[in-house]
Amino acid sequence: MLEIKNLHVKLEEEEKQILKGVDLTVEAGKVHAIMGPNGSGKSTLSYVLSGRDGYEVTEGSATLDGADLLEMEPEERAAAGLFLAFQYPVEIPGVGNMTFLRTAVNAQRKARGEEELSAADFLKLVREKAKSLKIDADMLKRPVNVGFSGGEKKRNEILQMAMLEPKMCILDETDSGLDVDAMKLVAEGVNALRDEGRGFLVITHYQRLLDHIKPDVVHIMADGRIVKTGGPELALEVENNGYTDILAEVN
């Protein structure tokens, strides 16, 4: 589904290479996790895939079901089925959460040549999805993420994911800033979306999240490359011994 080949990325404004040849394939129905120390390029990878400004791809490719992601505008990537759950969800004063969700859902449907959801159908759907994430009516009415707690913001990301039903979900440190209960709730939301047609890329520092969202494959990223790939046991190894041993072994 998601195929990244030899991806090299530098900052647009300065001569700083962040990704130095990332190779990664996420198959439909699988959950891949990327772990790695601070500054290894994990978040950059998620931003480059979703099309944020400020980065320059100098080499390599990234495709989603064969379509060249790097050629697309961010909204085209979204319509093609890519979703990024932000590490720091953005507050947008003056835009109601519900309006935002409806605009996004319908914009994607329109881009794919599907019919827009009626107000009634949308409302029914959003209420149902919100309920399972314990998002109340008030949170839906408030401006996007404004005044939300850390947990509420992350739940709101998962709600967007549930509404947009993307093919490929990237979760960028979705566990950061969450207490255990909130993390469980978020993980349940993600697990509910797991199915054969959908791929996940879960970026995290910690094994904890992976107790709740069980990965099929775990990658270790360091200095802009994937340096080791293994099964879930790799995450446990990191949890017990830190990155030092793994990195020493690789080097």
Partner: peptide, 29 residues
Amino acid sequence: DETALFYLRSRGVPAKEATNMLTLAFLAE
């Protein structure tokens, strides 16, 4: 706000529509 603009676009809202949404939001107060 470029960050807000990217956030909206990453959810599938086209750039022009996203800019208009943020403009209306600015005027809302």
